[in-house]
Design a protein around this nucleic acid. Structure first.
Lengths: 188, 188
DNA sequence: GTCTATAGCCGGATAGAC
DNA sequence: GTCTATCCGGCTATAGAC
């Protein structure tokens, strides 16, 4: 990636296309057309299609990991930590809306950086699971099966990108409150 | 699709590959190799790659739709209906594990049958939403925002395919109970 | 920095022998 | 029903002019 701003523009436009069709189905010609230039011209700014994918996914994956690391290390209660995790998902999804699709669906097409991505993703899950487990040990959370809880909360949070744009009117703070209530307290 | 059983075998093997890499990244040569034959030989059984995708997705989408239709029309309570919906998701996901990936991630690559799929999917969501709404009107369910509830439960159920195989030991009945409790009653 | 032209490869699909 | 051989178009990426 030679120029910073031009590269970011390519990544931004590409991520929109990735969200619609997935990485493999998007061609460099599609990307070039959306930029208003020819495909060959893209190669003045990027080394190849792979680089676009890595630049789409990895920076956001790092933000998620660093965020949950800070939450884990903070002196918050379990309840507050879970609220902050939900809030972080909503904020990052709102800020990196298109990129979240590639992060969820196209990470397996990473070539050089696949291992790095998996470390970030697995690390995130480990920390989340640790917090859920601590909640049960401290008798703050009440559940039968740890996996079911981890899976159901993470599924919802990871799929926010499919749905957040429709809720633009509901502001982030209220969404955080409502989603926390539903995920943690249930509906009955 | 000429022969029934041979076609089903192609669809079964293809759906495994679709789960790993997505429809677009899987080539007909990949499918043929997994079948132990050459790519050209596939065309004695299928009309093209598109047909495999449609046969992977549509029959399962129809089962989901017909299932929720029956649940809606039955004389069950809201609580029982929601339990049955969760149970149906677990059962169909266990039975059509690989196909669920394409149903979730590759439906946008359907060509001739895209409209039909969208009808089934939207119809499913409408019925689910109707049940959630009825629960609030009858003062059985308690929530602030209908969209948040619909989204969070469906996100979890639609992502079961990412996770059910790991839980093979936990039998379906216990999983249904645990997941119902977490999704509907919460963890606090 | 963008273009035209094109290399080189791989994709889906077909023809026709066996 | 499977094979070999092949078509043809689209793909990523490069070369070199402007």
């Amino acid at each position: 990636m030679k120029s910073k701003s031009r590269g970011a523009e390519i990544v931004a436009i590409s991520s929109k296309l990735f969200k619609q069709k997935g990485y493999t189905a998007v061609t460099v010609r599609d990307i070039a057309e959306a930029m208003g230039i020819k495909a060959a011209s893209l190669y003045n700014h990027i080394s190849g299609k792979q680089e676009i994918l890595a630049e789409t996914i990895l920076p956001v994956a790092e933000l998620f990991y660093e965020g949950i690391l800070q939450i884990e290390r903070s002196p918050m209660t379990i309840h507050e930590k879970l609220g902050e995790i939900i809030k972080q998902h909503i904020e990052l999804t709102a800020n990196y809306y298109y990129k979240m699709a590639a992060l969820n669906n196209d990470w397996m097409h990473l070539e050089g950086d696949l291992e790095k991505f998996l470390c970030l993703r697995n690390g995130y899950e480990e920390i989340f699971r640790k917090i859920i487990r601590a909640g049960k040990e401290e008798e703050i959370l009440n559940y039968q099966d740890e996996e079911v809880v981890v899976f159901s909360i993470l599924s919802t949070l990871r799929n926010l990108y499919l749905w957040i744009p429709k809720k633009a009117k509901l502001d982030q703070e209220r969404l955080t409150q409502n989603l926390s209530k539903v995920l943690l307290d249930g509906v009955f």
